[in-house]
Design a binder for these strands. Structure first.
Lengths: 231, 231
DNA sequence: CCCCTTGGTGTATAATGTACACTTATATAA
DNA sequence: TTATATAAGTGTACATTATACACCAAGGGG
């Protein structure tokens, strides 16, 4: 079976920059897959693939992530659409790029399937990537840094329950700065989007910290009234 | 001549939300074209069209604007890519949407060619638009409002030389607020990206205001050192 | 030459951001 | 059981920034 059109049509793909925080190593990681075919055979690349005709762009992104990395129901946000004529050596390919945030919660290297070779790379030890994926990834990283300051996306990188110190470290790792503990907490208190649970940290060899939860509903409500998240 | 592929391919288009400020009527305007064919015959729509295989996405956007509205060398920024399966009743069409900013400088209704019927609409008197263009336009408007606060995009809507009052009115119109004149000027002074020219307003029946120019180079320089524009 | 319109300017007060250090709780090792 | 190590948790003084506010100047038109 084949499909014929009056004018030439580009192929359309989705590609995802999937980020996670590695709290042990204190750095930001991105998920890459090793290509099993030409071009760029054996090069590392962003997970992604062709958009099917019966699925929306975001559905395509979710499906490709599921197929190539096993990740499901993760935070996805459209980044940019790359359409330079020669970005793929074979033919015209337009790629809708997404950035994705996941919390690893211990399963740091579990995210590989039998089908494809997938691995987490820290951002300062990146291999050279296939196509223009290096550029896509660096623009995605920049976007993440920018967004972190004025949208509560950081919580997508944390487990459901987290401590205030974890949250602070997350910001410090991604933005590569350090915050004063008291001032950081003061700000969060005023933002008023955290729910203090009555649970505390387990299995730590020091005073256990209180666990908090991000109140998505409350945030949406505040946001719709013109409230401006900023950290 | 025709083109055949193994898998079905979507058509790819670009669509542009072109904004301008109408200082007489004190409102924000958007450029629409009247469709000359089905579907949505005679409906108003965003200017746009199919991406050719030998041009990048931004080139396609510029070309379509030139062809349909006569506008050349204007500010263009990618907005979002819309790819819902049924957004075009005929077949699968993926549209890369752009928002564009122009300064009219008097030529308010000149922007129509013989080929297509084009007109400026104020945002609160919009007709119902073809396809999902209503949604695209409202998301573009939201993006413009957001961006205005932390990027110096407002200058794209002004002539090369402008008065501080014009700049202030521009912000007030788009953000639908009002600013204190002295505080507004104080902020601009601290941003330090305006060049005071030695020219003044002509043909006004009151004291003539000094004309300023936006210093793009200086802004780029400051931005690269981590400076943060905010108004 | 008077009036109308817009241009242009400073200061006092409130609100917000920043810098900074000690006590508390818990697990582990002596 | 006691000592030690580690991170948790908490308030205040000072600096910086944002806000509110009113009058004189300049120029054109009647």
């Amino acid at each position: 079976m084949s499909f014929t059109y009056k004018y030439a049509r580009p192929a359309v793909t989705v590609d995802c920059a999937v980020f996670a925080i590695d709290f042990e190593k204190e750095n930001l990681k991105v998920l890459l897959i090793r290509r099993g075919e030409e071009p760029f055979l054996n090069h590392w690349a962003l997970p992604g693939g062709f958009v099917h005709t019966d699925e929306s762009l975001i559905e395509a992104a979710h499906r490709e992530l599921q197929e190539e990395t096993g990740l499901t129901s993760i935070y996805l946000e459209q980044l940019y659409t790359y359409g330079n004529v020669d970005r793929d050596p074979r033919e015209r390919v337009i790629s809708v790029a997404w950035f994705a945030l996941v919390n690893l919660e211990g399963r740091l290297l579990e995210a590989r399937t039998d089908a494809v070779d997938a691995a987490w790379f820290s951002l300062d030890e990146l291999p050279s990537l296939a196509f223009d994926h290096g550029r896509i990834l660096s623009e995605a990283t920049e976007r993440l840094r920018g967004k972190l300051k004025y949208k509560p996306v950081g919580f997508e990188l944390l487990p459901e329950l987290f401590t205030l110190s974890q949250l602070q470290r997350l910001y410090e790792i991604i933005l590569d700065t350090s915050f004063d503990k008291r001032n950081f907490r003061k700000k969060l208190q005023k933002l008023d989007v955290l729910i203090e649970t009555d649970e505390i940290q387990k299995d730590v060899s020091h005073r256990a910290a209180r666990l908090y939860r991000f109140d998505r509903d409350k945030y949406r409500d505040l946001e719709s009234r013109g409230f401006y998240f900023e950290l």
